[in-house]
């Protein structure tokens, strides 16, 4: 089987000369047809810029300085803008965190919903509108016909995210890129949206590239996950394996630094010391070393390359089976 999306040794740089900062530094991963791949990381890990670069949406300061992004075997980076345009919104859909600014405030939902279908699928107004109503209904919007006539500000956050999802699915994409799709929503609404995404994914068989800072969301939705830290992938594994037997020191620290629902005051929370490093110049060795509780006698400090540690489990270091960290 061929991967749907293959990111190969991707490098993204912001700024120039002395100020150049490599936000993404040699990132590689694949999204297979029909799977949900979660990419987890904190701010500055490079997860969102990676997603944006797939859609060719990097801001002017950021540019791809190395690597390949292959979609169904074709390199998106060398494609003409016209060809890219036929992929974007048709084969690849995207939903964003920012539900406030991702919809045009002066156009009705109906107008925005049908725009893509009319342009890419050459549907006439009536057919596009009928399909839009059908899609909105499918995302759980009651009286979709009424919602078509409304403007974004008349809808709640949860409704707007449903509209965004319906819009992204309009042309039946093979890949949906979801960048923090539920971060701006309240928890009970967040759960509804997660269930919706999972239901739609099972129904249509599309693949989802899910970008999030929340390991919990990855646990709920993804089949496989990539953990990013300071512009690199540090661990990649099937979700169950990642959560039950994390190998990388950062993954382990991250899991223990989040208070669980049923952890009471009795147990002290582990906190990762320090902060994410700045990404200027050439950085050698393990990027997590200075914050790592295991760094003292670490065999991987100088050679922290990604390596296979079990079947589909890759990591830059291997601490499986080590005792848990104490606060």
């Amino acid at each position: 089987m061929e991967p749907l999306l293959q990111i190969d040794n991707l490098e993204i740089t912001f700024g120039r000369g002395k100020d150049a900062s490599r936000a993404v530094d040699g990132v590689s991963f694949c999204v297979w047809p029909g799977e949900v791949l979660g990419v987890v990381g904190e701010s500055g890990s490079g997860k969102s810029v990676t997603a944006l670069s797939v859609m060719g949406l990097l801001s002017r300061q950021g540019r791809v300085t190395g690597g390949k992004i292959l979609f169904q075997g074709k390199d998106l980076l060398t494609m003409t803008p016209e060809t890219l345009d036929t992929l974007r919104g048709v084969e690849i859909g995207m939903i964003f965190q920012d539900i406030m600014y991702s919809l045009n405030p002066v156009l009705t939902i109906g107008k925005q919903m049908t725009e893509g279908m009319r342009r890419h699928l050459r549907m006439d107004a009536a057919a596009a509108s009928a399909r839009a109503v059908e899609l909105l209904t499918r995302t759980g919007i009651r009286d979709a016909a009424q919602v078509m006539k409304k403007y974004p500000h008349q809808l709640s956050g949860g409704m707007r995210q449903r509209v965004m999802i319906a819009m992204a699915l309009a042309c039946r994409p093979k890949l949906l890129i979801a960048d923090e799709p539920t971060t701006a929503l309240d928890v009970t609404i967040q759960m509804q949206i997660m269930q919706l995404l999972r239901g739609l994914q099972r129904e249509t068989g599309m693949a989802i590239l899910l970008i999030t800072h929340d390991l919990g969301i990855v646990a709920e939705l993804a089949d496989r996950a990539v953990v990013m830290y300071a512009g690199q992938c540090v661990e990649e594994a099937p979700v169950h394996e990642l959560l039950t037997d994390p190998a990388h020191a950062y993954t382990r620290a991250l899991m223990q630094a989040v208070p669980g629902l049923h952890d009471s005051r009795e147990k002290r929370l582990y906190s990762i010391p320090g902060r994410v490093p700045e990404l200027y110049g050439d950085i050698r060795g393990c990027r997590f070393a200075e914050r790592c509780a295991y760094a003292a006698d670490c065999a991987y400090k100088n050679d922290a390359a990604m390596r296979q540690i079990a079947g589909k489990h890759y990591s830059r270091c291997d601490l499986r089976g080590e005792a848990t960290l104490l606060g």
């Binding site: 009970t188 759960m191 509804q192 929340d214 990855v218 646990a219 169950h240 669980g260 629902l261």
Partner: peptide, 23 residues
């Protein structure tokens, strides 16, 4: 509210959950 919270805890993932409809 507790059931809606996403959790990385594998033992909680398949818990029975109360869901609220609508907003």
């Amino acid at each position: 509210l507790l059931d809606a919270a996403p959790t990385a805890d594998d033992t909680l993932r398949n818990r029975k959950r109360v869901e609220l409809s609508g907003e």
